[in-house]
Amino acid sequence: MSDRIDVLKTYKTYVAGKFPRSESGHTYAVKNKKDKTVANACRCTRKDVRDAVVAARSAFSEWSSRSAYNRGQILYRIAEMLEGRKDQFVEELELLDIKKKDAVKEVELSVDRLVYYAGWTDKISQVFGTVNPVASQHFNFSMPDATGVVGITSPQESPLLGLISTIAPVIAGGNVCVVLSSEKYPLPAVSFGEVLHASDVPGGVVNILTGYQKEMIDHLSSHMDVNGILNTNSEKNIRKQIDENSSLSVKRTYHLTENNWIETEHENPYYILNFQEIKTTWHPIGV
């Protein structure tokens, strides 16, 4: 045994392409399955949610106007970076007492899921767009277009795979997001922020907050500049609160609760479509 003292990691948040601490100044203890504290995570609250929404909105115009090809390349780059840091993520999952075999599987599936959605970016409008044969002398076509800022409540379990399965379809379609990480296991989410940071994803496209979801969901889902919510929290009253808050600004809200994220049904182009607006353009035909 060496006498060296390990350097412990300070887990922060990922907002606007930076790694700030929570404005609240508070942290909470992250425990493994044996109830032993393994790290402290930021306990984000209202101000952090607001800052993250501002960061996301600022990034939206640029990200949504990137070419589909470019977005695909960037998603693929995230997969590459994650693959390269596989060991780190496996270790982090093991720290939470997830079995090594399961941890490896979760990280590998996460990489594959990113690759899956990377390939959709430049196909979604071909498969789900239409040219419409209107009866008048007009050329008319409909194309999917990003909804905007999407709030995501990440699943508690599958802290990495669940996180990526919810983020990837949202950003593949040109949206930006504010993500509330797994409350129990926030560490992989924060480390995934570092992967994003190293992957040419413009700052603000994905913003990751840790903390108690209950303390943030109300603020996120009632924020007037959030256009949609993807919720995986299965608590009934939380779901209802999200729905009610969504009505304040007619948000597009989807609930994906009680899922086994390992299943391939979560590789699903309709998840991309959930946060797409169909835009129809008309132009007269004539000389």
Binding site: N132, A135, H138, I278, T280, T281, W282, H283
Partner: peptide, 20 residues
């Protein structure tokens, strides 16, 4: 940011054309 864009025309409707 609108569901329908009418270019060099306006208020045209057709059953084949999505609206919203």
């Amino acid at each position: 940011r609108s569901g329908v864009v009418w270019s060099n025309t306006f208020n045209k409707f057709d059953p084949t054309s999505p609206f919203g």
